[in-house]
């Protein structure tokens, strides 16, 4: 019985995630294919202008976008879905003969690494600081932290990134802005070694700092108000009357319940951080998927652009799904009531 309800909640979440990915995939297909002045037509037009015969131009377009133009639209769409399911995203226009999937495999892990580490640090840090603010509410420490939190979360993340580069990099020379670019130093290969990890963190440091700074404020404020309201709950009062130790009450009764609302914002935060990666990675020239997306957009490399957009969306959907799962595990009430 309970198992059934449990699988029900998870099942519904899974269906929602899959539907979202499917809708976005469909949307991009028709956007690329049907929009007036769509990239496909433009590509064929430019080829024609360069003197390529129509048939060959169409063939080239077809192989780039993995769409067989001679087939009816619906079948093209089905082919597209089939290819997607196989992880086949076509070929890059700019770096000829490079499959898009290869580009994604090369650059996506770096972005995921930076985003995961940042969210982890800011989530944990925000929770700790939020609890401190709640416990010492209205004291100077709370007032300073609240002030900083609300200021820093209203500054656009790319502005902070620029300021870090210009002030700490160019002016104070705390780091070499040319050397810190990229995701690894030249010659360093991914492997299980301290040397590799150190180098990876060195290059990821700046984006991580920016993401942490721009997201920690909202965690702090949400955690603070959530903790304050949890402290007033009857079960906390009763736990004190039960003679439970203060430290145990703070962890298993207060903090444990107060973090639950944060998981709802976690989904939004993941989307925002991943979504901001084209900007942040461009500013730091960090070799992640976001930088590749902005490159693809400037060079009008549509197959790459389309695929990266899809993969970014899919990552966010998967991350949201995981956050939902985690919330389902942490909050027994949600498994039975929220679907």
């Amino acid at each position: 019985m309970l198992k059934k309800i449990l699988s029900n909640y998870f099942f519904i979440r899974l269906v929602k995630a899959l539907v979202t990915i499917f809708v976005v995939a469909t949307f991009t297909f028709f956007l690329i294919r049907l929009m007036p002045g769509n990239p496909l037509d433009i590509f064929i037009a430019t080829q024609l202008a360069q003197g390529v015969p129509l048939q060959e131009a169409q063939e080239r377009a077809a192989s780039l976008f993995h769409i067989d133009l001679s087939r009816p639209m619906m079948l093209q769409y089905l082919d597209y879905l089939k290819n997607l399911a196989r992880g086949d995203f076509g070929v890059s226009i700019i770096s000829t003969n490079t499959p898009v999937s290869k580009i994604i495999l090369r650059f996506l892990p770096w972005t995921l690494f930076v985003v995961t580490v940042s969210l982890f640090i800011s989530f944990i840090g925000g929770i700790l600081l939020g609890v401190v603010m709640a416990l010492y509410r209205n004291s100077w420490i709370d007032q300073i932290l609240s002030f900083l939190a609300s200021i820093i979360s209203s500054i656009p993340n790319y502005v902070i990134a620029m300021l870090i580069v210009v002030y700490f990099g160019v002016k104070l020379k705390w780091f070499n802005i040319a050397e810190i670019r990229g995701s690894l130093s030249p010659g360093v290969k991914p492997e299980f070694s301290l040397y590799f990890l150190k180098d990876a963190f060195y290059h990821a440091m700046l984006p991580i700092i920016v993401y942490v700074l721009t997201t920690i404020g909202s965690w702090m404020l949400v955690m603070k108000s959530s903790t304050i309201s949890t402290l007033g709950e009857d079960y906390v009062e009763v736990a004190k009357a039960r003679g439970i130790k203060e430290s145990r009450i703070m962890t298993s009764y207060v903090a444990r319940n107060a973090i639950l609302p944060l998981f709802v914002s976690l989904a939004i935060s993941i989307g925002f951080v991943v979504g901001g990666s084209p900007l942040i990675e461009s500013i730091f020239v960090y070799q992640g998927i976001g930088l590749k997306l902005s490159d693809a957009i400037t060079t009008r490399d549509y197959p790459v652009m389309q695929a990266i957009f899809l993969i970014i969306t899919a990552s966010v959907v998967v991350a949201n799904f995981l956050a939902d799962l985690l919330l389902g595990v942490l909050d027994p009430r949600i498994r039975t009531s929220r679907n």
Binding site: K16, V19, T20, V23, V24, T28, L31, I32, M35, G37, N38, P39, A267, I268, G271, F272, V274, G275, G276, P278, L279, G290, L293, S294, I297, R300, M305, Q306, I308, F309, I312, T313, V316, V317, N320
Partner: peptide
């Protein structure tokens, strides 16, 4: 409601980039 849920989930800035490069 479903539409809203999907549009919330899609990261906005990349979506804008894609749209801006097409339109």
């Amino acid at each position: 409601n479903g539409l809203a849920e999907i549009i919330i989930t899609i990261p906005h800035f990349p979506l804008l980039l894609v749209l801006a490069s097409l339109i």
